[in-house]
Design a binder for these strands. Structure first.
Lengths: 219, 219
DNA sequence: ATTTTATCGATATATTTTTATCTATTAAAC
DNA sequence: GTTTAATAGATAAAAATATATCGATAAAAT
């Protein structure tokens, strides 16, 4: 990860592993809060999430949240610190392409709103799907993507198409001014340097899982 | 990650970041092979996948694959090295619980076979879904999970249920002898120490994506 | 009030992962 | 055949990340 400290901000870039854990803390803490807990120690968090308490402490430190000896962290404060840190409170609009099962699953996932992500509309090329409305989101013809993306100044695109067409869709997104792509198709996308791609790579998780299983069995 | 070198094997545990990249190389090399290429250098791989060539070289080293100066790696050999390394050639049977859109997306994903994963059957509690067949996989009543899991000696379970019931399903899996759980529900699962959980955590990817986008804009 | 205990926060250390450098090898060009 | 260029492989350095240690602090117990 590129660490850029130049510029005005006091914001030092957060290590990626930490960044990935923050949403996990967030979810956990929300649950705790719903269970009427108000404070929780990093020891407890660590135990529940199978982490080390030191790590939890360090992770939370980057959010600016601060705890109190003997009682732990004030859950609400940490939640709001994470929200600010991850930008959960400024909603980012996105467009999704590909309304197969996976696409529909994402369209229907209420949780995204919580993470500051709003899927505005979906696109497909299948005439049977165009015009349909899923979970309140309309499906447009892919040919209209650019128009909508530019009109709404959308920066984030989601690809849930079959692998074969993902690159084509990707190119179209780039041409439409999309700056970040969340790619669920099992291919590596080629993009210009100024476009970010985040791959949701199931095969990688699977590799970790089955390797662990194998090692566990061996010992 | 726990490094266990005790025991008989020459197999030193592969670093997790490397492990996660191996499937990516695999997919890329397969594509290359399909395009009739036979050799490829780590420089080329690196360029295409936005990595450093040294990293590619080191990653491939752990698979035991070996290249030739001036020509690069023999694609077929590397493919087979990765297959062996990640266990793609010994198929692991799994059961999936939760036949919502996400569950169906996974059921229908042909790619898993390539990665040595075979979803044998699906389970749900919704009477409307039980008995249905999706992509050649039958949906059973969840109450039959234990029976089937034990009879087929299944070790891996996939959870694609709503968050609210994921823990209950998880407990049931553990009770049925499942040793590894691939969890797509947005909750942290509590399991005994001898059970592995791999979370497919979309919120984590999203965090990385939107942070990168923010940092890119700032500079 | 004093002691004890749980906890955070800061600093230091260890480990892991990435990147760089240098050498050896091999195919191709001359 | 000899030279040149591209490349892997080994070793070393650097960077990033995770873990440990210790002192400070605040609540609870005595």
């Amino acid at each position: 990860m590129v660490k850029k400290d130049q510029g005005n901000s006091e914001l030092v870039s957060i290590p990626e592993p930490t960044l990935r854990r923050l949403p996990i803390y967030y979810k956990y803490l929300k649950m705790k809060f719903d269970e009427k807990d108000r404070y929780v120690s990093c020891t407890t968090i660590a135990k529940n999430l199978n982490l080390k308490s030191i790590q939890v402490r360090k992770d939370l430190q980057v959010t600016g949240a601060t705890g109190k000896p003997k009682v732990g962290y004030h859950i609400e404060s940490v939640l709001s610190a994470i929200e600010t840190c991850l930008g959960y409170n400024n909603v980012k609009d996105t467009l999704l392409v590909g309304t197969g099962h996976l696409g529909l699953a994402l369209l229907g996932y209420k949780g995204f709103r919580e993470y500051g992500l709003n899927i505005v509309a979906a696109f497909d090329t299948d005439p049977h799907k165009i015009g349909a409305v899923y979970h309140g989101k309309k499906v447009y013809n892919l040919s209209q993507f650019k128009l909508l993306a530019q009109r709404l100044k959308i920066q984030i695109g989601i690809i849930t198409t079959p692998a074969e067409v993902a690159q084509i869709v990707c190119d179209q997104m780039v041409e439409s001014g999309i700056k970040a792509i969340w790619n669920f198709a099992p291919v590596h996308l080629m993009v210009p340097a100024d476009v970010i791609v985040q791959n949701e790579n199931m095969s990688s998780s699977l590799a970790v899982l089955s390797k662990q299983l194998l090692e566990r069995k061996r010992s």
